[in-house]
């Protein structure tokens, strides 16, 4: 179910729009800059009209995520710099973004960066009723415990590793 947009790009996207996907793959998320907006899974569609106008559909991770507007601006600025005139970002709410939209490369980069990626899929029927087993992104130990449901951004929770004793952030399953 978690089809990585990066793979879709080459197989299913028209060449002109493919170029726009490539540019977007280089636009970082402002709060987790190792991830591109494509890897975060928030780009829903790219449309190139006959008159050359670009529309990008972006789905917010959380309804109140303060980064949403920064992301929209950085996409527009970047596309303008690449020669697209008056690019437009539109908000797409349905279907809602979930952590399942993170791409495989996005998950690997999160771990590398020191943030534990989501431990399971939210489509699991019991996902809200069990505590996820989260591996420490530094030492891979499973001896970890949750410190807080919430952390520095809406999308993360705070954890602690009992093996290497380091605190770390966990990208929540939602």
């Amino acid at each position: 179910m978690n089809q990585a947009p990066a793979n879709r790009v080459d197989r299913f996207v028209a060449p002109a729009e493919r170029e726009i996907w490539r540019i977007l793959a280089d636009v970082p998320d402002p709060e987790i800059p190792v991830l591109s907006v494509v890897e975060l899974g928030i780009i829903r569609h790219v449309r190139l009209a006959d008159d050359g106008r670009v529309t990008v559909g972006v789905s917010p991770t959380y309804t109140g995520c303060p980064a949403t507007e920064v992301i929209a601006r950085s996409i527009e600025t970047r596309l303008e710099a690449e020669g697209y005139e008056h690019p437009k970002v539109e908000s797409v709410l349905s279907p809602p973004w979930t952590s399942d939209w993170l791409t495989e490369s996005g998950r690997a980069k999160l771990k590398e960066y020191g943030i534990a990626p989501p431990a399971h899929s939210v489509s699991h029927p019991k996902h809200l009723f069990r505590e996820p087993k989260v591996a420490c992104p530094r030492c891979s130990s499973m001896q970890t415990s949750k410190v807080s449901e919430f952390a520095s951004t809406p999308c993360k929770a705070l954890y602690r590793c009992a093996s290497c004793l380091e605190p770390f952030e966990y990208f929540k399953c939602i």
């Binding site: 959380y62 309804t63 109140g64 919430f150 809406p154």
Partner: peptide, 20 residues
Amino acid sequence: LEEDLALANIALDLLGQARY
């Protein structure tokens, strides 16, 4: 601090709903 962050995060979600 953790509860400070939690309440602020919940407030943000609610603010997002309100804005929409």
